[in-house]
Design a protein around this nucleic acid. Structure first.
Lengths: 352, 352
DNA sequence: ACGTTTCGTCGAAACGTTTCGACGATCATT
DNA sequence: AATGATCGTCGAAACGTTTCGACGAAACGT
């Protein structure tokens, strides 16, 4: 394995000159530069990451901290990781996936103190998240995915739940639906203050109100059984329902199963829209789900780019951005067969 | 940030003594050890990872190289990552996820040459995999997930496809099924020499032969549409079929949709077994799928442990291990309603 | 022609560990 | 009581970079 000394000797220059050529820190004449680069190529030289990290006090490693619970990563998180890794790679950084769960806060403290990570992206942030405190104490540059309760001081990227819900509701209303039920995460999750669940709830109420419609929200456990139960509850609360909007990616398969079980056809009897869902999951269902596609890959990229700016910049800048999910119409939404009670049979927006 | 010098000064010993206490490389008296540890605790000292890596020529970072194609990680791969990360963490190592796709072989070469990774776990290995060559040339310790064509020299962990298929077939035959169709990956994938597809094909033929039954295999594209087409093809080839064994986790949702579409009930008209599937995915279907659960987490752990042994040991040892998937019976398999043609009502293997 | 910048390069000192060789003490062996 | 081994500790030399200060040489203004 060639070192910088070898390159310097071969090019007949000093080590520092080689370093300046490679890092561009100081101006070097074209002639010398060529000599050095030729030597680098000939020796197939690669800088030693550890030595570079020690001397420059920059590891060029970024951490991606995700809960990694037993359910593992969904397709959305996966897209996020892919996007983040690509952006890190483009910036000359590596990305470390750390399975730092909720419990091992000491693990996290150790990780941050070892100076192995130049910066960190924190996923699945809770409204009150101890990990944030730990990392801030350690002085680690930080970008959040999601938002804490106090959003003022930190950089974050999050989904624009309000805009997303508004679009989803508009799509259904546009098709002629008047009775729409929103299936959220579980009551326990809501009670624990999970941001996305709370924000979508409020956004749903607001969006329905904007159309002069009654909002009905049903919480559901994160399982197929939870979805079935939620659908039963939905019909109990709103027997005339023609559309379901579901936040709960896991429950939605139960919802579909239960609808089929009741002899109801999707989309003609009941339309279904899945929120914050990846195309891969949406395609698994039959019919394929009309969904609000989460911008996973873009979020990963943006988060890393913000983090890199943090590292280079003066350090006092913040990046706060919301990204909406994109409506992708597939087979699970259509004009309702059962005409809306307070509307004519013809949908208001089908003038194609 | 405290350094080793600070600890040494506070404990009134030399730096090397501190190092010996911390690494256990040389014997140190209890009295000195106590002094040092007290100083460490007081200063909240954490060793600098870069300095340690440079001096010891060990980064304590392990790489997990996965294709990261646009489909992202399935639940099985996710479990693998989780298991691997936990094992690495337990061994005092960190795990780097690197999105090294097929194209950027140079990227991989660079990564290996930077001496940032002590060792590497390579996922989704092809029968002829250039990445293996690159890493071997760079002298990077290596463990494969999957097997190359020549299995003699390398360490690997893989699924025991033969055993898995045998169990799946035995389950179905035990229920009384006689006409079983195997839905594999696509013809193109088979032609490209993808190990799992080839191995399961051969294992299926062997297992069916063991029961004196006719093996029927249908290739299917990795999509819901591919699954539908495969099912149609299956009925064309074997109109009397009562069971489907599917390797293709994506196609299986299309298969289920098409069965429902044809008015056939799962499991009573047709039983379905999904191979190498995670419980999470199996639960998404209605009814929940009887599946051969892939040992994702265990594989991750075993691969990392083998890699760590590689790093400590003399370096010439190999670890080669096959893990079967475990049969988990859920709602998609049952005794066939349509009695088998060439057998009495009683199944040949149900002598419990 | 003479100071004064600017440019290109060099030598050496970090960076924070690990690890090697050495050296008194202590201990067992004769 | 002298002779080795063993134990515990120390000082110093790596490890392979980056980066600072310095220093000639060339280019500039006067």
């Amino acid at each position: 394995m060639a070192t910088m000394h070898d390159v310097a000797r071969l090019a007949r220059v000093s080590v520092s000159t080689v370093s300046y050529v490679l890092t561009g820190t100081r101006p070097i004449s074209q002639a010398t530069r060529d000599k050095v680069l030729a030597a680098v190529a000939e020796l197939d030289y690669q800088p030693n990451a550890m030595a570079r990290g020690l001397a420059s006090r920059r590891s060029r490693i970024l951490g991606l901290l995700m809960p990694m619970d037993e359910r593992g990563l969904g397709a959305t998180e996966t897209a996020f990781v892919t996007g983040a890794a690509a952006a890190a790679s483009a910036g000359g950084y590596h990305l470390v996936l750390s399975p730092v769960g909720g419990g091992d806060l000491d693990d996290l403290r150790r990780l941050a103190s070892q100076r192995m990570l130049d910066g960190v992206v924190l996923m699945e942030v809770q409204l009150a998240d101890e990990r944030v405190t730990v990392l801030q104490e350690a002085g680690t540059p930080l970008v959040l995915i999601g938002r804490t309760g106090d959003t003022s001081t930190l950089s974050y990227v999050d989904i624009d739940f309000e805009q997303t819900v508004r679009e989803a509701v508009a799509h259904l209303v546009g098709l002629g639906h008047r009775s729409i039920v929103y299936v959220n995460h579980s009551a326990a999750t809501l009670a624990s203050g999970y941001g996305p669940a709370l924000r979508t709830r409020d956004a749903f109420v607001a969006a329905m109100a904007g159309h002069g419609l009654e909002p009905v929200m049903i919480p559901a456990e994160d399982s197929a059984a939870g979805g079935r139960a939620a659908l039963a509850a939905a019909f109990a609360r709103a027997p005339e329902l023609t559309a379901v909007l579901a936040m709960n990616e896991t429950a939605i398969f139960g919802i579909l199963g239960e609808l089929t079980g009741r002899g109801l056809s999707v989309p003609h009897d009941v339309s279904v829209v899945s929120m914050v869902t990846s195309p891969q999951v949406a395609e698994l269902a039959t019919p394929a789900l009309t969904a609000m596609t989460s911008p996973g890959s873009a979020m990963g990229r943006i988060a890393i780019e913000a983090l890199l700016r943090h590292l280079d910049g003066p350090g006092d800048e913040r990046h706060q951005q919301l990204l909406p999910c994109a409506l992708e119409v597939r087979g699970s939404t259509a004009v309702p067969r059962r005409p809306a009670q307070d509307a004519p049979g013809r949908s208001p927006t089908d003038g194609g």
